[in-house]
């Protein structure tokens, strides 16, 4: 058992947990968190793919891809949270009416 196998399995499990959360949970913030877990799981798999047995250096191209993915996921999260806040406000206004 080398680190790439251990963390590869962990990344796959995190992706699966996130996917389940995104489709099966009802709460909007938890669904969003599920998607975020999917992105971290995918990051695990990419970084495992870039890993080489030391002392060989890892492949930097997947690393750059994952950094890009982290920033894109933050952008998507911020947009989704703005939608959640707005939806919540509209529903609260409906409840008062």
């Amino acid at each position: 058992m080398t680190p790439d196998l251990i963390y590869g399995a962990a990344g796959l499990a995190v992706f699966g947990i996130g996917l389940w959360g995104a489709i099966a949970l009802q709460d909007r913030m938890r669904r969003l968190l599920g998607l975020k877990l999917c992105s971290v799981g995918a990051g695990f798999v990419l970084i495992v793919g870039a890993w080489r047995e030391p002392p060989a250096a890892p492949d930097p191209v997947p690393h750059a891809l994952v950094i890009t993915g982290i920033v894109v996921m933050l952008s998507a999260t911020a947009a989704a949270l703005a939608l959640i806040r707005r939806l919540h406000d509209l529903e609260a206004a409906d409840d008062r009416a």
């Binding site: 680190p3 971290v40 970084i47 495992v48 950094i67 982290i70």
Partner: peptide, 16 residues
């Protein structure tokens, strides 16, 4: 960090 990706680890800790 254990997978020799310190740049990604920094980005995940700070941004992600």
């Amino acid at each position: 960090v254990r997978l020799a990706a310190p740049d990604v680890a920094l980005a995940e800790a700070a941004i992600g």
